[in-house]
Amino acid sequence: MAAAGAYYVPHGTKWPIVGSFGMLFTLGGALVGVATILFMVFGWFGTVIRESVAGTFNKQVDTSFRMGMIWFIFSEVMFFAAFFGALFYARALSVPWIGGEGDGALTNFFLWKGYAPAWPTNGPSEIGGAFETMPAWGVPLLNTLILLSSGVTVTIAHHALRAGKRKELLVFLGLTVLLGATFLWYQAHEYMEAYTQMNLTLGSGVYGSTFFMLTGFHGLHVTLGTIMLIVIWLRCARGHFDRDHHFGFEAVAWYWHFVDVVWLGLFLFVYVL
């Protein structure tokens, strides 16, 4: 056991080797590998939660968790910046270039004659065939309102935690989970409609690929956020947090706000503008 007040270092844990085997198993088949990795994630995080509740972590460990959050968010910001960057590059630069703007006059004349730049587009070769775009005034707007409402409910839950109102915290955190799940349900339907009725697919040129990469990875983040909110709801129900000690809650609540802001950017730049 570590001395009181020292930086806690666990002595002996099986989770790293379980994770390593999980990665090895993905070579044989995704299902077994991913299942093993999920087992590792839940087991490892569960161990850390039990260590935290047992009071083994000092202030320095707390700072480490907060630093970990910063780096995680930094990588997330870079990740979405790359995809938003691809969207802006295609829309504002490369599509106008092949349409003859700027110094692209000869490119347009010799390679893409007659192509008039526009957005949305699947390019001069019309990769993926004719498609319809997803109108903003429908499911996307509904999903925006759902996600914004979940941002409001998570803020109310946060306020309740700081005010020491447990019941309010659980009710509004629970509502946030439900709103997140509803968002995902509508997005799945939007994708089915895009594929079956609008011929808007991942292969619909630059519009289709940026559309599905951005909204798809955002949806994945909503899925992850919803799972994290469920875990935090269970931890709140078990009384793991109080008004002064709630980093787990705060980090996940902040992550939910982050995912919400990414959607705002998506809704505005992919669907509306």
């Binding site: 959050m69 941002g151 409001v152 002064d244 705060e250 706000h257 802001v261």
Partner: peptide
């Protein structure tokens, strides 16, 4: 969140401004 370590309402208030402006 990094500087106050959950001891103040500054994180909460910033997030309240962020959701209010978004709505």
């Amino acid at each position: 969140m990094m500087s106050d370590k959950g001891q103040t309402d500054r994180t909460l208030n910033a997030l309240k401004r962020r959701i209010g402006l978004s709505v």
